[in-house]
Design a protein around this nucleic acid. Sequence first.
DNA 1: TAGATTGTTAATCGATTAACAATC
DNA 2: TAGATTGTTAATCGATTAACAATC
Lengths: 187, 187
Amino acid sequence: MLANEGLTNIYSHNIAVLAGRTPAQVRRDFMVIGYNGTPAYGYKIDKLLESIENFINPTGIIHYAIIVGIGNLGRAILDYCFRNPSSVEIVSAFDKDPMKIDRVIHRTKCYHISKLPEIVSSNNIKIGVITVTAEEAQNVADMMVSSGINSILNFTPRRLKVPENVYVENLDMLISLEKAGYFAYNR
Amino acid sequence: MLANEGLTNIYSHNIAVLAGRTPAQVRRDFMVIGYNGTPAYGYKIDKLLESIENFINPTGIIHYAIIVGIGNLGRAILDYCFRNPSSVEIVSAFDKDPMKIDRVIHRTKCYHISKLPEIVSSNNIKIGVITVTAEEAQNVADMMVSSGINSILNFTPRRLKVPENVYVENLDMLISLEKAGYFAYNR
DNA sequence: TAGATTGTTAATCGATTAACAATC
DNA sequence: TAGATTGTTAATCGATTAACAATC
């Protein structure tokens, strides 16, 4: 964003304001990613960006992911990810509804859930997104894990039981909405 | 969930497993909400639920919210919230696209963004959800704040500049997806 | 009663911040 | 040079966990 505005350098306190953090926190994090600024010019935006990208995804290879559950939320995520390319790309979608099978939805091919193990393992896919109902979430997670997925983005309110080597990122929109509701009336 | 299974009582270590926390953490949180269990029977599920609900929303009145931006994500959220009623209800939606104005989308009336100040202030609405593009996010936030909203759920990657008395909950799906991508290959 | 669990304090742990010599 | 900023250590802060008397 700043690069597009024509800026080339930035100080830790500028980033702190933009990120809602303290300058010390910014500098500490930059220690971790291993990029050094200079006292006079701060950080070079292009080099900094490069260092961050290199830290998050050193090979630069796009990681493939799958999504299970193509309701409104699943489709919204497919669309959102297509519009905002990142280091992760959702390459296949799965559902149990025959109406959705073998169609291309938001540019993503949709398969029956029974095809998941084959597609995941043969393509060596490690990342799975769950947008089914809470009741189905654990079943889907089990299927993902046994097919070789070791990192799950879980949009359901159900906490998943997975082996210790599998990472789970929970994202519960209802909890966020309730938090917003709580703090609207409690301050 | 447990009540539906016919259980009436539960211990802190049971909840800890389900929530992915430690028993001590569970007991400490229950101190805060002010519900006491007994050493013999643990916690009564119905009383516990009641205490949690009472802590989050003591009046029991549903809080009204609005949403701005009725793209795929906005519609998915409307649908999701309708299916999962909580203490917060989204009562009006706003967009700038004339195609969407004055229609009812997912059971929610959609207005032109210019109607926001009037509807928010006359209904004394305190909670706003932002699902527009990153570029439009700050403008929408400013409009919300000046209309009386003091709690914002922000789905865009842009950090919002708001007065100190306004609460902002950020929910960035792309960051969550990148986190899942990172931990799939770094452990 | 014996055993398990609670509520709560004290101890520990980790994350944030303050501070400042080195640097440009 | 003077002033501002960096990288990094030490100090602080807050959150998590251990521990245990009280309790059922």
